[in-house]
Design a protein around this nucleic acid. Sequence first.
DNA 1: TTGTCACTCAACCACATGAATGGCTAAGGT
DNA 2: ACCTTAGCCATTCATGTGGTTGAGTGACAA
Lengths: 205, 205
Amino acid sequence: MASSARRSPQERGKAAERTRERILEAAVEEFGAKGYAGARTAAIAARAGVNQQLISYYFGGKQGLVEELRRRWARAQESVTPPGATYAESVAAHLDATLDDPDWSRLVVWQALGDGLAAASDDEWAAAQRDRLRQAVERTRRRQEEGEITGELDAEFVLLVAYALAFAPIALPRMVEGIVGADPLSKDYREWVVGQLARMTRRDA
Amino acid sequence: MASSARRSPQERGKAAERTRERILEAAVEEFGAKGYAGARTAAIAARAGVNQQLISYYFGGKQGLVEELRRRWARAQESVTPPGATYAESVAAHLDATLDDPDWSRLVVWQALGDGLAAASDDEWAAAQRDRLRQAVERTRRRQEEGEITGELDAEFVLLVAYALAFAPIALPRMVEGIVGADPLSKDYREWVVGQLARMTRRDA
DNA sequence: TTGTCACTCAACCACATGAATGGCTAAGGT
DNA sequence: ACCTTAGCCATTCATGTGGTTGAGTGACAA
């Protein structure tokens, strides 16, 4: 039903594809701003400049929309970490990935809080996510063994701090801003975090 | 209207007070679980075991309920930090305060994300909150100057890490659990965090 | 001319909130 | 003993609103 647009005469199919994309972009903004329960399909349609009914037409309704977004996010997650990066570089990359489009990250937090469809296709997806985290821990541990960063702190801790400091500006912007006194989405914040993390993981003199 | 119950013969007024309290407790659970937009007054009433219209009767509706909760939270925030505590103790106290009743903390995260009444009485309240954070930074800095913790890292960073690690189990429980491999609300997690933070802030040997 | 695709219009249904009404019980005052 | 009142429950209604459905319309291709 939704994919019927793809195998069509191609010429006008592209316009439809762009429309779908506009709806999805608008959905990220709206869901990111208000969460699933707070988001209004009418608002999404208005943002995208399309008719409200197109959402049902293309995605089968509000629920279908979020599921599509989840699928996209899963696919996007698969290509994040640069391979031969230093510790500082990989932290910076993760910060950028999280803070470059806050709407998208906010959406993740809403999800984590249990907003909207909590138990949708959790098994497979959650397992993959867990694997990814486990791998990240392993990568951190390897850096410790190779002496790139200190072994004084647990690898789990080092990783957790980096991840928490990436998400804090999304989940609790006021708190972060109140503490550091700067816009937590800014380059300044990111560079400061990277610097402090580098210091934290420096091998003892 | 809502306060008419207070200045009454007192004896039976206590039953009413308990009912109000039950409604508020139920509200924390429901709002904490679903957020403002997702919460249903009917569900709150059911949880509290009272009639739905009592909510309107006592608090003037859904909105009035959250405002009352906000007021309570503000009042509760005023008495958190023990005065003469060590760094580790104060970190542990903060972790406990955040994780002992997760519903309440979740509610804070929902608020921070912009769920529900965003712009309600923000000015005064936000200012007070900012002051509190600023004071916490100052306390941390004093600990550095007194040599209790290292001066290698910025005071803002030390504080931010502690706060972020307190809220991460609330806002992103799956992520934390995936990294540390334990229930992030457990005593184990808290003690581990305290231990790692102590190590992180240890003065260089 | 017929069919299909992209999309629109107008109704519709479900439901949450809030308010109104009425009643019932237990405790006190008189 | 009677009446009042606080506290609460049951039911209903009005209203708004959000999401979805069903029947179209215009453009273009075969």
